[in-house]
Design a protein around this nucleic acid. Structure first.
Lengths: 223, 223
DNA sequence: CGCATTTTGTTCTCGCGTTCACAAACTCCT
DNA sequence: AGGAGTTTGTGAACGCGAGAACAAAATGCG
């Protein structure tokens, strides 16, 4: 039961759980679109691709939002998870590096629909300035600090080449950004208190390649 | 010391270690570019952004490739890790879904430089067929099976909208693809034996948002 | 009203991964 | 050659997350 400090929902949700909450949120959205108003932990777990026991434990960190013998109200649970993650409000986001990937990110529809708003696209390349991508002007990288301050940006996305990424990250942190999503293939050094998540295509491919090779070897040895 | 079955290096490298090997590989490449021929576990760990103890343990699963009192030979270790991952050979890859993201992926230079070769770009949209992206023709999705068979493709990349992803995955698996990198924001159902790794922008952003919100709450409460 | 059924929320156990700490092994200097 | 100094490789302890199993609570029916 773990008595809570009056104000808010649970503290210290495990990191592994936090990483799955957005998956549950999406699964609930799908269920809602299909017209489902109530679901059991089995249903939701299947839609999210996880074990139902794990799902129930994850949800239990947020509170007790289900009804025994009945299940979960889709809309209600959806709201509770959204609130826990923080996507009931709008997060301003700045994207730095408007190459091929930056274009794709700026046009990504999932941004707006999930509580994120691209307030600026920045690029060091003078030739790109003034260009419009997804309805937003591309502006000089030097505008970073002003934009971050003005809009209260906490989240920055880096889609520059690897060599520029560390500098961009440093400038972001200096401007007040506390969370960075890094698509550049490099390890970023940031002060403690700043969160970095990385998305790295070639690493993912290499992990897949390892398993392919391993399977091939296993088969070869088995004869 | 764990005596090995004559033929090859260690079996059962932990999954967490496998996920870090590509990071080490990249760090070693950087060191090599800087002209470093030897490095200690501390040096490499710093470059890779991990704990040196963890690095040494990770490497110990592959074999004993260092020299006590000296460190690791950069080129030698690099080759050993590349061989373990399997990137000493070339992996043919097929990309399905040539929208904004597909374009970015096709143009991604890290593909070729890390042992991956894009053998085909496929899209269901008839209007795109014949278009060239990064020097490769965009072809109909229906060519999938032929291409997979012809080139022995084991790795497929999905960068379609969410609604098409499951069908694409099914067709890939039916054609003989055993590993899928999924950029579509949906949970894929695949038979056991098929590896799926997912890259999901909006999930990553939501995880960051959670932590931003959490920090903000903590500050508010601290006064 | 009480019992059977359903489904949640929680407890318990197990295995994996991380980190510490140290012995083994190599180099260099005298 | 021997000892001091380094650095690897590994054994052991610890903590977190996954999954199974069960108790608690709600519904519906006789």
């Amino acid at each position: 039961m773990t008595a809570r400090s009056s104000a808010e929902s649970a503290r210290d949700v495990p990191e592994a759980t936090v990483a799955r909450l957005p998956v549950y949120l999406r699964a609930l959205a799908t269920l809602a679109d299909e017209g489902t108003s109530t679901c059991s932990s089995e249903d939701l777990a299947a839609a999210a691709g996880v074990n139902s026991s794990k799902l129930r434990k994850d949800l239990s960190y947020l509170g007790s939002y289900g009804t025994r013998g009945v299940g979960y109200d889709v809309d209600y649970l959806r709201y509770q998870i959204a609130r826990e993650i923080g996507v009931t409000q709008d997060w301003p986001v700045v994207i730095v590096g408007i190459g091929n990937l930056g274009h794709a990110l700026a046009n990504f529809s999932g941004f707006r629909s999930r509580g994120f708003r691209v307030v600026a696209l920045l690029d060091a390349d003078r030739d790109r300035h003034g260009e419009q991508v997804a309805g937003v002007d591309v502006r000089p990288f030097s505008d970073l600090e002003q934009i971050v301050t003005e809009h209260g940006v906490a989240i920055g996305v880096i889609s520059t080449p690897a060599q520029a990424a560390q500098d961009v990250a440093d400038r972001m942190v200096a401007s007040g950004v506390t969370s960075i999503l890094n698509f550049a293939p490099t390890v970023l050094q940031v002060p403690s208190g700043v969160d970095v998540r990385k998305v790295d295509l070639s690493i993912e491919l290499q992990i897949l390649a390892y398993h392919v090779q391993r399977k091939a070897q296993a088969e070869a040895e088995a004869g």
